[in-house]
């Protein structure tokens, strides 16, 4: 038996570490890794509540999130690779073409 707040605290810590990573990192691959941390935090919540309410919908949804995360990483790394090929850098502060 596990207290639910323990699970939720773990997930909240992972999520805020991910927020820090997204904001503080400049390397595009590092930012993608921090986004993975945030997606994992969401999955921890989904699985915890699924076990609490005895409802499998949470676990099925966590599986969908994992699949979409895999798609996101594939596309994201392809875009990063394309940026590197065109600009010789993946420093996000230099990829600011669309910034007002």
């Amino acid at each position: 038996m596990i207290r639910l707040p323990l699970v939720l605290l773990f997930s909240a810590a992972l999520f805020s570490i991910g927020v820090y990573g997204v904001l503080a990192r400049r390397n595009a691959v590092m930012v993608l890794m921090a986004i993975e941390l945030m997606l994992n935090a969401v999955n921890v919540n989904l699985v915890g509540f699924s076990q609490l309410w005895r409802d499998l919908a949470g676990q099925v949804f966590a599986l969908f999130v994992i699949a979409v995360a895999a798609a996101e990483v594939g596309i994201g790394l392809a875009i990063v690779l394309l940026i590197y090929r065109n600009r010789e850098t993946i420093d996000l502060s230099e990829v600011s073409l669309l910034k007002w």
Binding site: M1, I2, R3, P5, V7, G48, Q51, L52
Partner: peptide, 9 residues
């Protein structure tokens, strides 16, 4: 703290 407990089903 400690109200709902997840049964490890």
């Amino acid at each position: 703290w400690g109200d709902p407990r997840v049964e490890l089903a």
